[in-house]
Design a protein around this nucleic acid. Sequence first.
DNA 1: TATATACATTGCAATATTACGATGAATGTT
DNA 2: AACATTCATCGTAATATTGCAATGTATATA
Lengths: 109, 109
Amino acid sequence: MGVTKTDLFTEQQNELAKVAKVLAHPARIAILQYLIQSNTCINGDLVQELGLAQATISQHLRELKETGIIRGSIEGVSVNYCIDPIRWSEIQNLFETLFSGFPKITDCC
Amino acid sequence: MGVTKTDLFTEQQNELAKVAKVLAHPARIAILQYLIQSNTCINGDLVQELGLAQATISQHLRELKETGIIRGSIEGVSVNYCIDPIRWSEIQNLFETLFSGFPKITDCC
DNA sequence: TATATACATTGCAATATTACGATGAATGTT
DNA sequence: AACATTCATCGTAATATTGCAATGTATATA
């Protein structure tokens, strides 16, 4: 099938999975890291930086935008993309909640 | 194509993306949460718990195992799966490094 | 107005993922 | 030995993802 049965899972599980899927590509990780480092940027920079075609990068940016991780504001001909701080810490919390659920000390098996 | 150009990115970026991909399915999130909660379990439980076919769950378990997040030890007829604490905190660190790179205070744009 | 620049969108080909029935392998039970 | 139970693997169908050329759109500049 290739289609996920989301109705079997909780909203939190589906949400976390969806966010993880957006992070599940090195180009999107690279874009985020570049945004973090430069604190603002435009698509043109990324084509130079990443070595992927402009269309491909635009598509990755759209996915990041759709999850709300980044926002783009038109600046004349180019677009300034930057990380949404609210959404960023929201997502950070999602992962932290998952990871901190497991007590580091225990070793079963 | 459908094939990721991993050679364009750093090893860290590819690794993080790969781990994120494993977390990018609600069934695998649910499996991990169930493992965290019960601290040990077998496949049979999960079929009841998740409502997916046994073959499907076995496949998800394999993906989790391949990334090293969980380990399975044969226990007679059944298999005890549990989270690998070392790998777990390794992955936790990967995400923490990504998230903490962004200073919460700044708001650009 | 004509042209250049910076993205976004569309359409397509190649590959990956999801789900499951059927079957196989291993262990336990009668 | 015959059967049941538990899980893994194989094969397959449906859908999703990745990447890019081509094209579209909007703004700026000559």
